[in-house]
Design a protein around this nucleic acid. Structure first.
Length: 294
DNA sequence: AACCAGGACACAA
DNA sequence: TTGTGTCATGGT
C-alpha cells in the first residue's frame, strides 16, 4: 500500500542542507525564510531542516514515492566514509571543519550542463539569474501550492534549440548564448546522447562533453561530478586555483601541468568531493567569521 | 570606479 | 606546452 502524501521526512546524519543547496553546485534554489524552494525533476518542492537529523520535504501534489528526491539529495550517502578518504593535511582539515555536512547533489545532466556553460566568468548570483530567466521563458509551468507564485521546470533541449540566439542573449548570458544553442541542437539531433555517458568511464565521458562548443576541462568536470557522480572529476576554477596555490604551494609558482598532476594524485578517490570543500571554504571563510575584533 | 567572476578559444611565442 | 587578448554582464 502506497502512502500518498504532500510531505516526507528524510532521516539524515551529517547533512547541512543550507550549505549543500547554497554552495554553488546548483542554481535553482531560493531561500524563503527557513525553507529552500526549487524544482527537481519537474516537481516543485520546498525543503527545510528543522533539526540536524531530518530534512522535511513538501511537494505541490501528493507523491507515491520520494526516490527522485532522495537520489537528488544523496541522503543515503555515508558522509564520514567519504571524508575518511580525504588527505590528512592541514588545509583539508580546516576545510572539512568549516563545511561540516556539505554534500554533493546528483543533478540532471542537461540542466547541469547548461548551467555550467552559462557559468564561465560569472558570479554565482548571476548564474542563478540566468537559469531563472531561462526557466521562466522557456520551461513548462509546474504544479505549485495554491496561491504560490508560478514555477517552471528547466527547459528541455527542444525548447532551447528552438530559441533564437537573441532570445537567449536576452536571458543575460551574453557570449554564451551560441554555446547553449549548439548544445541543445546536439542533443536534439542525437549528436550527443547524455544518457549514454553513464556507461563510459570518466575520461571518455569528459572527451564527449568537451566536443561541445564552450565546454572545456573545467565545465566538463563540473558536469561529470555534479550530474554523473564521477567523484574523481576535479573542477579547477579561480577559487580552487587560489586554494591550491595558497594552501598547498604558498612559496613556489607551480606550472599548470604540475597543479593538474597534484590535484589528480593528492586528493584520493573522492577528489571532486574534496574540491567542493576547498571551494566553499575559500569562498566563505573570511565572510563567515567577522568577529575577530570590535 | 576599477576589479573580478565556478572559462573557452584562437593565436602567439 | 605556456602566456595573452577577447568575448558580455553586473556584483562588490
Amino acid at each position: 500500500m502506497f502512502e500518498l502524501g504532500f510531505q516526507h521526512r528524510f532521516a539524515v546524519r551529517d547533512y547541512d542542507l543550507a550549505a549543500t543547496l547554497g554552495c554553488g553546485q546548483a542554481f535553482r534554489w531560493q531561500q524563503v525564510g527557513d525553507a529552500w524552494e526549487g524544482v527537481v525533476a519537474g516537481r516543485w518542492v520546498s525543503l527545510r531542516q528543522p533539526d540536524t537529523d531530518s530534512i522535511l520535504a513538501t511537494a505541490a501534489v501528493p507523491q507515491a514515492d520520494w526516490e527522485w528526491l532522495a537520489d537528488y539529495l544523496q541522503t543515503e550517502v555515508e558522509l564520514p566514509i567519504v571524508l575518511a578518504t580525504f588527505p590528512d593535511d592541514e588545509p583539508m582539515r580546516a576545510a572539512v571543519a568549516h563545511c561540516r555536512g556539505l554534500r554533493l547533489l546528483r543533478q540532471e545532466p542537461w540542466e547541469c550542463l547548461v548551467s555550467f556553460i552559462c557559468s564561465s566568468t560569472k558570479q554565482i548570483v548571476q548564474i542563478r539569474q540566468i537559469i531563472a530567466l531561462l526557466s521562466e521563458r522557456f520551461g513548462e509551468a509546474v504544479a505549485v501550492p495554491s496561491g504560490h507564485a508560478p514555477a517552471f521546470a528547466f527547459p528541455s533541449p527542444d525548447r532551447l534549440a528552438a530559441a533564437s540566439e537573441a532570445q537567449l542573449r536576452a536571458c543575460k548570458m551574453g557570449f554564451r548564448a551560441p554555446y547553449v544553442r549548439h548544445a541543445a541542437q546536439q542533443i536534439v539531433s542525437g549528436g550527443l546522447r547524455l544518457v549514454d555517458l553513464h556507461a563510459h568511464c570518466c575520461a571518455v565521458a569528459r572527451d564527449e562533453l568537451e566536443q561541445l562548443n564552450g565546454v572545456g576541462r573545467k565545465i566538463a568536470d563540473c558536469v561529470l561530478l555534479f550530474a554523473y557522480g564521477f567523484q574523481e572529476a576535479f573542477p579547477v576554477d579561480v577559487w580552487v586555483m587560489k586554494a591550491l596555490r595558497q594552501l598547498y604551494f604558498p612559496r613556489r609558482r607551480p606550472t599548470p601541468h604540475r597543479l593538474r598532476s597534484f590535484s589528480e594524485t593528492h586528493f584520493g578517490p573522492n577528489a571532486g568531493y574534496a574540491q567542493q570543500y576547498l571551494f566553499h571554504y575559500m569562498r566563505t571563510r573570511l565572510r563567515s567569521k567577522p568577529r575577530g575584533k570590535k
